[in-house]
Write a protein that binds this DNA or RNA. Structure first.
Length: 486
RNA sequence: CGGAGUGUAGCGCAGCCUGGUAGCGCAACUGCUUUGGGAGCAGUGGGUCGCGGGUUCAAAUCCUGCCACUCCGACCA
């Protein structure tokens, strides 16, 4: 037994943040690296988290008028090449499908693509779907009556990334991609801002994280977009994470894919299109924003499991009664719409506790002979830890459980905002930026937007691996956020 | 694609220089004592040593060809 409190995750965040991140994922059983280069296997607990995100966010899109659909995984290479900036942005990271049949290798080394099965027209595995959806839009839209057309798909895409990290940057990743078409610029802009607002609502009200909404600088724009809006967050190690983006594609894709409509007065007009997304990367964001040295901390409203009930069994013949008490408790919590489960596994109680801690289950409830006798439960908040341990009457707990979960959410969100604010430093010159990042400065610096015209900025950005994150709405374009980023 | 490195039990590694019965830690399994913030003891199971060729009485070890992956650079939701 060591004297100082041992952390569940080794190393700690301070000792080695990237390694800590990997260990949290492993300890929480969220995902693992797969045998496929750069691709992860999302394990049941991690997928449950993603499913919850889908289940909560998807109805919001439908409410707004977006319809779900599914487009092919494979995109003709020719499509990608049509939009000049778009190709340039994605061509370097595309996996290409060139054959449609395998055959035994004559040299005896398993299988090889059959030379006579070479495709006339190769495909790329979609890195994003603007092009193939654009092609469909050109046929689906004829009249102003067909607008707006609002489409979304939940899908995975593939980008052949050089350096990968689970959730944050994997070759294959899961996301939703929305693609909307409007009559004019105003419609497209409103759409971008509306979706960005939905993202903000989702992040703050469900994931308990906050950041900065804003406009991307020109060099950080999506390839093929006229304007990119982004939600930027600050991680605990001082690096920023782009959590979601919406793109005003102007008429760029409309021109290349011939997306036109007849207006009321009979004229032929180009559509204004948008695209927008958030991805499983957000799970990485949750880990790096909320996690501590004991592992994951699940925001209650997205947690696959909100309450774990641990029966504390002693060898005194009361096991059956305690289990019954726990089952009843879980049933009552479920009636209140709380995701609760008894951990009835054949394991030692302390091991179950640590397991629940590492998985980040928001509320842990312990029930032993003492509680059962007294008609009580003991509960502990994951975000605070043992200091929050309290024993209260069962009835009272049932009434207060939802409130406890909400309180955890509120505190986590407040912490996230506090962290963001404490890691945003106002600067006024390139020298300030140099000074900030040369010292132990961590986080965003916020500079007057004119600084982008300063020629000495580029060298400083390069030296410290910085990029512009966005020009936050709150300052109406007068400032720009700069940080290291994932 | 440049530079470096690694492939040996589920995971992490030692053994290789100097060929000679395949080893350690963790995990798993069994038993007993335990169980309210990471238990102890005893025992058990598990590996064609990345793949192919060569040298040798004998290859994880030496030679050779191939493959895969990791890290560092340019790219990135």
């Amino acid at each position: 037994m060591s004297k100082k409190p041992r952390t569940a995750i080794t190393p700690t965040r301070e000792e080695n943040f990237p390694e800590w991140y990997q260990q949290v994922i492993k300890s929480a059983d969220l995902a693992e690296n797969s045998p496929v280069r750069g691709c992860m296997t999302v394990k049941p607990y991690g997928w449950a988290l993603w499913e919850n995100m889908i289940n909560i966010f998807d109805p919001w899109l439908k409410e707004y008028g977006v319809q779900n659909c599914s487009f092919p995984l494979l995109i003709p290479v020719e499509y990608l090449s049509k939009e000049a900036e778009h190709v340039e942005g994605f061509a370097k990271e595309c996996a290409v499908v060139t054959h449609h049949r395998l055959e035994a290798d004559p040299d005896g080394n398993g299988l090889r693509p059959a030379p006579d099965a070479k495709l006339e027209e190769p495909f790329v595995v979609r890195p994003t779907s603007e092009t193939i959806i654009g092609e469909a839009m050109s046929r689906w839209i004829q009249s102003y009556r067909d607008l707006p057309l609002q489409l979304n798909q939940w899908a995975s895409v593939l980008r052949w990334e050089m350096r990968t990290r689970m959730f944050l940057r994997t070759s294959e990743f899961f996301w939703h991609e929305g693609h909307n078409a409007f009559e004019d610029h105003e419609g497209a802009t409103k759409d971008c801002l509306h979706i960005l607002g939905l993202y903000e609502k989702f992040f703050t009200e469900v994931l308990a994280v906050d950041g900065y909404k804003g406009v991307k600088t020109e060099d950080e724009r999506f390839p093929g977009a006229n304007e990119t809006y982004a939600f930027e967050m600050m991680m605990q190690d001082g690096k920023a994470l782009q959590a979601a983006t919406t793109h005003d594609l102007g008429t760029n894709f409309a021109k290349t894919f011939d997306i036109k409509y007849q207006s009321k007065d009979g004229g032929e007009e180009l559509c204004h299109t948008t695209s927008w997304a958030f991805s499983t990367r957000m799970i990485g964001g949750l880990i790096m924003m909320h996690g501590d040295d004991d592992g994951m901390i699940m925001p209650p409203r997205i947690a696959p499991q909100q309450v774990v009930v641990l029966p504390v069994i002693k060898d005194d013949g009361t096991a059956g009664q305690i289990n019954e008490y726990c089952d009843k408790l879980v049933a009552q919590l479920k009636e209140k719409g709380i995701k609760a489960k008894v951990d009835g596994r054949d394991m030692r109680t302390p091991d179950k506790m640590w397991d629940a801690i590492k998985k980040g289950i928001p509320l842990r409830v312990e029930v032993g002979g003492r509680e059962m006798e007294a008609g009580e439960v003991t509960c502990v908040r994951r975000d605070i830890g043992r200091d929050s341990k309290q024993t209260l009457p069962l009835e009272k707990f049932l009434v207060e459980a939802q409130g406890l979960l909400d309180a955890i959410h509120d505190d986590m969100l407040a912490n996230s905002r506090k962290f963001r604010d404490e890691h945003t430093t106002d600067v006024s010159s390139v020298a300030d930026i140099q000074h900030f990042f040369s010292g132990d400065g961590l986080g965003f610096v916020k500079a007057p937007v004119d600084i982008l015209k300063d020629e000495s900025l580029e060298a400083v950005m390069k030296e410290h691996g910085l990029s512009t994150r966005n020009m936050p709405f709150e300052d109406e374009g007068r400032t720009v956020l700069i940080a290291k980023a994932y």
